[in-house]
Write a protein that binds this DNA or RNA. Structure first.
Lengths: 196, 196
DNA sequence: TAATTAATTGAACGATCATTTAATTAATGG
DNA sequence: CCATTAATTAAATGATCGTTCAATTAATTA
């Protein structure tokens, strides 16, 4: 009825993240109770408050680290400084491969924005905007060099991002198509849609 | 403490649909209580059960009528029996115009699938599959006539549907771009991505 | 207008919700 | 090994959840 033998704060913190992520992704934030998370972690509900002040804070932490990881991974990539169509291909492959391996993070980051209170919402939305800007910059460059025939970089960026992120709604690993094959097909469609 | 003056079952039923739709779309199914719906309708919680046996049933009804409306509207349209690229253009314009005018229905139909219990899920999923099949048939026809260069009709259909439905995540009426302009840009991108 | 049916209320049901707190025990550092 | 700190439990808080039901009144039908 007190501290458990073998207990470790860092391990419990990690377990809370993992279990919350899985539960939020499959049931939705509101449908998951602190008791469900506690059960999955193997701990009493009260123990969760040693790690997060509120349930809302768990969600914000998950979404923040997903968006930050996404941005940092892009930024530490070696950027091909070639033609705009090469940059676009690199972006498509990066987006698909990063997202396809993190279905739960992607799901909650795109679906639970409405569950965020104003403060958290603004923080996450700002990170999202920064990522959108990465693609828009590529499209702008291609448009000004007349490599892309796109009329509007913003609309094209929204369309491409929706298309790419949509992979997560139907892809299941071990299916008919390999990840590489899927990337190839999306690269082809995106490049053609941009006019090259 | 009983039947209210001027009360009418059909009007209350309609109000329950409208208010549930708006509340589910902005907060999510699980985050909306029967008391919130009752308040919005202007009625006591118990009255809702004259119209729906469970909260779940409200959601299923909303999703079913959205998907049925979508399929029926497509089916009663005059089908252009021309070239595959004309059929594809017609589909793109239809999808965007139907969805852009029904943001709440679209939002819950795509986001609350996980809130459905097995029976309702299968019913709604079947309707979704039928709609996907409409686009796949167009792509198949274009591929076999060698008008489209797409490698895989299924993947292309998923990609195109994600792209089109994504309009709802950023479009706000009264903004910089007219609906017609948006349709034009998406038609151009989709046709180019298909190789024509 | 009398009888019937439709619509709604108000109160209650037990269950579950997020969160707080004091007590307790294990791990850690000197 | 002893003092301190970290981790956890058990129990309780008041609020809210979906749902049920008997009583009541308005609209409708005959």
């Amino acid at each position: 009825m007190a501290r458990k033998s073998g207990s470790s704060g860092t391990l419990t913190a990690k377990a809370i993240r993992q279990q919350s992520l899985a539960l939020f992704a499959s049931h939705g934030f509101s449908a998951v109770s602190m008791r469900m998370i506690a059960d999955a972690v193997g701990v009493q509900p009260g123990a969760l408050y040693q790690y997060h002040p509120t349930k809302q804070n768990i969600l914000v932490d998950l979404m923040r680290s997903h968006m930050q990881g996404l941005l940092e991974t892009w930024n530490t990539q070696e950027i091909i400084n070639g033609a705009p169509e090469q940059a676009l291909e690199q972006f498509v492959r990066f987006h698909i491969s990063y997202h396809i391996t993190r279905p739960d993070e992607v799901f909650i980051s795109y679906m639970e924005l409405r569950s965020l209170e104003p403060e958290g919402f603004q923080e996450i939305e700002a990170l999202r905007k920064r990522y959108e800007q990465v693609l828009k910059a590529i499209l702008d460059e291609g448009i000004s060099r007349k490599v892309f025939v796109l009329e509007d970089a913003h609309v094209a960026a929204m369309a491409i991002l929706s298309m790419l992120t949509g992979v997560n709604t139907w892809f299941r690993s071990g299916g008919r198509l390999s990840q590489e094959k899927i990337e190839d097909m999306y690269v082809a469609m995106v490049l053609r849609s941009s006019g090259c």
